[in-house]
Structure formats: C-alpha cells, structure tokens
C-alpha cells in the first residue's frame, strides 16, 4: 500500500495509488456479478426474445418488430397499457392529493399521542403482502361485502353492486385498493417533510394575513417539492408495475377491464406461451416506467441544485 501524498485532499478522485483503486474493485465485483447475471442479462434477453416468435419450447423464428406492432394494434395488449396509465390516477393522484390535504390538516397535531399511534396504524398497509390486501378487499367489495352494507345503511342501496365484477367499476375498485395501500406512506412522507419547514415562514404569512389556503399553496407545497416528487415516483411505478393485487382480486377481468401489462406478460409468457409477445410488452413496460420516472427525478434535482 502506498500512503497517499501528504496534504492531498483524500476525497479527491484518484487519490492514492492505482493499486488502491484496483483493489477497491474487489469490493464491487461480487455485487456487480449478481446484478449482471440476474438483472442485466435477463434485461438484454428480454430485448432479444422480443424480436422472435417463440413458444418457449420449440425452435424460435425471427419476427423483427412484428411483436411490437402487435403490442400497439391488438386491443387486448394496448388496453392493458391504457389501464395501467388509468391506474396512476388512483395509485398516485389520490394518495398524493389526499395525503397532502390530510398532512396539512394534522400538521399542527403531529406530536400528540394520537398522531404517534396513527403513524403506526397508517403504516400497516405497507407492511403486509399486497396479496393479503387483495384478499381482504375482494371480500369487502363483494356484492354481500361490508362496503355495500355500509352504502345501504346510508340509504344508497341503489348503487350497491359487486364492485370488482362490474365492467365500469372494476378498474376504479382495484385502483382504490392501491390507494389504500399507498395513502399512509404518502401522508407520513409529506408530514415528515412538513416538519422540516421553518415555522417562521408560517408566522410571517399569518402576520401578512394569509389564510390557510394561501399558506398551503405558497409555503407548504413548494417546500415539499422533493417529498411530493418521491411520492409521485413511488406510486406511479406501483401503478404501472401492478400485479399482485389484480392477480388476486380480478385476474384482469371482467372482460379485460382490469388487465394490466404485468399480468398480461405473465399470461402471455406462461399460459399462452407467446414468449416473444410477452417480451415485447415487457420492453414497452420497462421503457414506460423509465419515461415516467426520469422526468420526475429531473424536475426535483433541478429544483434542488
């Protein structure tokens, strides 16, 4: 080992001798190996498969971009992409907006006993398997479930239905399950962000005679830029890549109303044995996720630096 030249700032890149640098690689290689074998290789294989017609067993035939053509022309396939985008409304918009409103309302009581208990309770949906959320909600939303029971109590017996079995309500119903899972996380993230806002800002606003709404719009929201971006990123990815909840509660039905890309890939690859088509859809899904996540990241990074 060569000791670093005295007086040289150690944090600078290239500090120390080459030996030290290359020895450091030994620390990276195992992680990189796992990543390469189980992520990078499969990603490149997904690209490759997407160019073939293959049933997973016999020989494959070259298909060029035909599978991609199908993804954008076969209604069963592009509808799944549209459904995923629609789910964003429920998985992202509802938790973020509602979370903001709730966090703003409970900001002042964030340190009470009740709020401490609430912190634990609101986290429960994050901890349990999504499969369990799917089972519990399928039962709540069934025609004889508690949701309908509650609506009947309110005198809304006319709107009761099997929420997950109705073509027009199945997707929103699945979306609400997702919103239930993500609302607690968003609320707490935003609340944590709010606690970092300098109270003096609010005092000053109050002195200027600003109302609660003005306060919210001109102080709270701008200060939470980063937290909001995080919430949006996490929830948008959860929406686009949703699988567990839908697999359990509707299997994509009724009539493809809740079919999403993740489930469609699973069916195509493993039950219809259209590996090429499944892979093309997988590529589109991966690109869609990146296309949604990158701008959000960019947006916050710009604001911070």
């Amino acid at each position: 080992m060569t000791p670093p030249a005295p007086g040289r700032p150690a944090r600078r890149r290239g500090a120390g001798a080459k030996t030290r640098g290359w020895a450091g690689w030994l620390f990276v290689v195992p992680a990189l190996a796992f990543y390469a074998v189980f992520v990078l290789r499969p990603i490149s294989l997904t690209f490759q498969y997407s160019l073939y017609r293959w049933d997973g067993i016999g020989p494959s035939t070259w298909a060029g971009l035909a599978n991609y053509g199908k993804v954008f022309t076969d209604p069963a396939l592009y509808d799944s992409l549209i459904n995923a985008v629609k789910l964003i409304v429920f998985f992202s918009a509802v938790p973020v907006l509602l979370g903001l409103a709730i966090a703003a309302t409970i900001r002042r009581i964030a340190h009470t006993r009740l709020a401490v208990v609430a912190r634990t309770v609101l986290f429960l949906p994050q901890v349990i398997p999504l499969v369990a959320a799917g089972i519990a909600w399928s039962w709540l939303l069934s025609s004889t479930g508690a949701v309908n029971q509650f609506l009947s109590l309110l005198g809304l017996g006319g709107v009761t239905r099997a929420w997950l079995g109705d073509l027009s309500t199945a997707l929103p119903a699945v979306g609400m399950i997702g919103a239930w899972v993500l609302l607690g996380l968003c609320t707490l993230l935003l609340l944590a962000g709010m606690s970092k806002i300098d109270p003096a800002l609010y005092e000053a606003a109050r002195l200027d005679g600003a109302g609660a709404w003005r306060e919210f719009v001109s102080i709270t929201v701008p200060s939470l830029r980063q937290e909001i971006a995080v919430c949006v990123t996490v929830t948008v990815i959860a929406a686009l890549a949703s699988f567990d909840i839908i697999y359990i509660s509707t299997q994509g039905g009724p009539g493809n109303a809740t079919m999403v890309p993740g489930l469609q890939i699973y069916y195509l690859a493993f039950s219809e044995r259209e590996v090429g088509m499944a892979s093309a859809l997988a590529v589109v899904l991966m690109l869609l996720v990146i296309a949604c996540a990158l701008p959000i990241q960019w947006f916050t990074k710009d604001g911070k630096r």
């Binding site: 294989l45 490759q48 020989p59």
Partner: peptide
C-alpha cells in the same frame, strides 16, 4: 458490459434439445 452479457445471441430455444 451490456455487450458481453448479450453474448448468448443465438436465437432463443435453439440451444436446448428439441423433443
């Protein structure tokens, strides 16, 4: 890196024995 990973560029299914 990606290049080396994609070395297995034979068409899928061609390397496994066909029944």
């Amino acid at each position: 890196a990606v290049g080396t990973l994609a070395t297995a560029c034979a068409a899928p299914g061609s390397d496994s024995p066909q029944p």
